[in-house]
Nucleic acid binder design. Sequence first.
DNA 1: TCTATGCATAAGTTTTTCTTATAGTTTTCA
DNA 2: TGAAAACTATAAGAAAAACTTATGCATAGA
Lengths: 304, 304
Amino acid sequence: MHRLLSKLPPLKALIAFEAVMRLGTVTAAAKELTSTQPAVSQQLKSLEGNLSTLLFIRRGRNLQPTAAALEFYAQVTPLLEKMAGYAEQLRADQQEGRRVNIVANCGLAHFWLLPMLERIKQDLPQLVINVTLSDGVDSEFENALLLGFGQLQHPLKRTLFVERVCAICSVEFSQLHGLSRNSAVQEIVNQPLIHMDTSDSRWLNWQHWFANNDLPYPEQKNVVLLGNYHSVISNLQQSKGLALGWLCLMQDLLQDKQLVQVSGSIVSREEYGYFIKSSNAPSSGEALVYQYLVDAAAQKVEYA
Amino acid sequence: MHRLLSKLPPLKALIAFEAVMRLGTVTAAAKELTSTQPAVSQQLKSLEGNLSTLLFIRRGRNLQPTAAALEFYAQVTPLLEKMAGYAEQLRADQQEGRRVNIVANCGLAHFWLLPMLERIKQDLPQLVINVTLSDGVDSEFENALLLGFGQLQHPLKRTLFVERVCAICSVEFSQLHGLSRNSAVQEIVNQPLIHMDTSDSRWLNWQHWFANNDLPYPEQKNVVLLGNYHSVISNLQQSKGLALGWLCLMQDLLQDKQLVQVSGSIVSREEYGYFIKSSNAPSSGEALVYQYLVDAAAQKVEYA
DNA sequence: TCTATGCATAAGTTTTTCTTATAGTTTTCA
DNA sequence: TGAAAACTATAAGAAAAACTTATGCATAGA
């Protein structure tokens, strides 16, 4: 353990050493580093102590580097420069908005953002886009674009998709049970239902759906609560029952006839849905991606 | 200016970052670094601030590195490891006494040590020997073998050569003026004399020589004071006059008949001469060189 | 739902680093 | 030769940085 800590000399001392080697005197180095001569002198001493190696022969007024110092200088300077270069690169990327972080709700990411990601990267090649999946988040992120789900009435949030859900199942399941878009809502009462674990109660669930259709909530046995929407769809495709489908996310699958809408009932809440929210200090790149996603969502809605 | 300082992130933070990336959690990193979780957490924060780049997406309990973090980790870790490696190498060299610093009087170095240096390196190939020339030094050096000139009565000093000087000149000059080893000391009185600037008064000079031979010190006009012994010999070889020759240093040149001793007078002071002195904490390598030089000096004396 | 694990933040303390002042050495200049 | 200037090392008090303890909050697992 302590793989590096115990072996690395103090960086400040290295910087002081580099400057002294390059400029020849402690005083000049101190000037460049906007520090004082004793400070640099002590740094050198501490470096010599750390390396337990004499780096300079002190002859009263001037210093003469030892062979060890010359060697170490030649080794370490390029490393410091590279390191500074990498750090600068990162800062520049950030400064110029080339690096964009997106924190996205899992379902939205899986069924909407990720399929589109390659295209986004092609369309905005100057950006480095980083997507992190995260459910149950609508808090502040300091440096990331947030794609979340929840209440839409918020000055900083912009709506991507209003919440609209319907009952869906696989083609196979629909054929087996004679279900279709024209089925009456009553037919759904006795079907096995697939549930998502919506412990945070932000989401519409089957209870809402039945209440909205003036039907009694059927008693459920052996309820399976799935942790994320991806699992729900996975179970759905295995024809294990009916699930609630968020229209905006399922649109492609419905159009491709991979899934089937059951009954014409669409339950929606205008004040809930998927939203996009800028970081506190959006970069130019973030602004680009923001607009790109807003546009993409608007286009998708048109099909609905 | 500020070529590196302003661009480099704090090293401590880099070490914390490296450990967190490698181990996955702040707590584990803190444990490895024998620090505390909040300390590491703050380091990460400071690094993010320094790079003005988000490195981790915090999701309550765990951290997820951003693309920037992964990239930076891949760039920086090898640099840190190399740096640690170089530092370790230096420490190991020192530890095992592979690195020896010699601070040597200019004259002694030029006429005795340096001609022998290649041979020393061949004979002690495991050592890295670093010679620094320095006149007028008999003070303490923390980490270097000192070859100096001065008083010999000192518990830590060991005599290399007792001070013995004679008058010398070039072969050409001796032939022009009919001088030889058999010449009487009186013949020297009217010859042009070459002087070394011995402002520190440790050295025998022409005044001493004349006094020692019971001769009046001849009035000098256009006295040229040369700063180092090398210049003196250079002038001597240009047949500009007579100079005082330190026997131990001139021995090779006298044997090769490049220079000629004039008169048989040899002035010596038993309590002065060239000495060798160990550093405060001599390494094994230093001890080897010490003995090597003592032996070499002893051998040389035999010819005298 | 309760507990364990893990991160962030705040506040006070400790450690490190820096600055000011001083002394010593060497070079330069008169 | 001697005084001034340039440069470094060291000591001690001051400033800054880092760390630790305590606490709150969020998530994961039972």
